[in-house]
Design a protein around this nucleic acid. Structure first.
Lengths: 190, 190
DNA sequence: GGTTTCATGTAACTAGTTACATGATTTA
DNA sequence: TAAATCATGTAACTAGTTACATGAAACC
């Protein structure tokens, strides 16, 4: 139930509405989590009924009231306990990996085109993350505390994207050689 | 619904029981997927009712009958179509990342100890994957077809584990410096 | 004599996704 | 005037986890 924790972490930094938490999740790698707004509203409701957060309704003109949530002491205690607890290795799961294994059931040029698109998406994310590092953490050695933590999480995202791009490139290289090999067999030049 | 696909991929290589599929998922990185047996049995039932697989009950002495599932032509067609389709980048999700961001709510030495344990788990997986490469793919350049695909998936697992280990090391290094810094403040030597 | 392997299942739960709904405000 | 932003919600669904259940065989 890391969504609960991700929301609590967000609120531990500043109080906010469900909408704002959703924005943060989708806009930054910083929370290393993603969720739809429905999931967030539902979870906030549960966190409230569990006494981990409280909220204050704020009236607005022309817009629905917003509920500004704040972490309670119980929520803070719970978070601290969770932070000190072990994090098991997540089970391995990758759509791309599953698909790759069966790649020869498809059409190689098509598979390669889709792989290239996947690679490019990952490369675009990587550029975004690198831009954030430059913009928000220009002097990483000087960081400490919360800011350091946020930087290190971002570093994890950079590493992951790099890994994805490199893996796709490795696969594409090998598939390219396969293509050339089969072309050579189909139309030998000597 | 990549579990469906993962099961179909497994059956495309050889017919098998739900139990065997579960073994494969948990024993090898090859399918890049994990699932509990309950999930697998349930999904096989659905795949059967969708006409993507068929099964034959095999009586055994002293054991419950086993159902040996086989991919149907419809299943094979469906898989081929899926293999040719795009794979979107999965949403970023990491318990460790969420936790790291809130690391200063916990106790630094405790957090570091848990991080070290996480790192060691990932390093152990990495050794397992590397062992498989050596054992089953000693000459990667010579591979082609299904065998090549399987190798490339395994390479993805190696890369991911490496990334996890390296990230943990980077975080641990920085946290170590934080520890030393705070120790220096608490007990200055000059 | 206790654990692991083989082999399947039901039931209840938690987590996550997709579709639909409302409605004012700001920006292009 | 069309799209995006702000702000929340219900409902129905799919996916994944955990607990409980059975029972023989093989291994240590």
């Amino acid at each position: 139930m890391a969504l609960e924790h991700a929301i609590l972490v967000s609120l531990s930094e500043r109080p906010g509405t469900g909408y704002e938490i959703g924005q943060q999740f989708s806009r930054s790698i910083g929370y290393f989590w993603s969720a739809t707004h429905q999931q967030i509203y539902r979870t906030l409701k549960k966190l409230h009924s569990d006494g981990l957060v409280s909220f204050e309704s704020v009236a607005q003109d022309g817009r629905p009231d917003k509920k500004v949530y704040t972490l309670s002491q119980a929520g803070r205690d719970m978070l601290a306990e969770w932070v000190n607890s072990p994090t098991p290795l997540p089970p391995l799961r990758s759509d791309l990996g599953v698909k790759l294994r069966a790649a020869d059931l498809g059409d190689l040029p098509t598979v390669m085109a889709e792989l290239r698109a996947h690679r490019d998406e990952a490369a675009a994310m990587l550029e975004v993350y690198r831009g954030w590092v430059e913009q928000y953490y220009p002097d990483p050695d000087a960081l400490s505390g919360r800011k350091l933590n946020q930087y290190l999480v971002l570093r994890g995202g950079v590493r992951m994207s790099e890994q994805t791009v490199d893996w796709c490139d490795e696969v594409l290289d090998r598939f390219q050689r396969e293509l050339e090999r089969s072309a050579a067999v189909a139309a030998p030049q000597h």
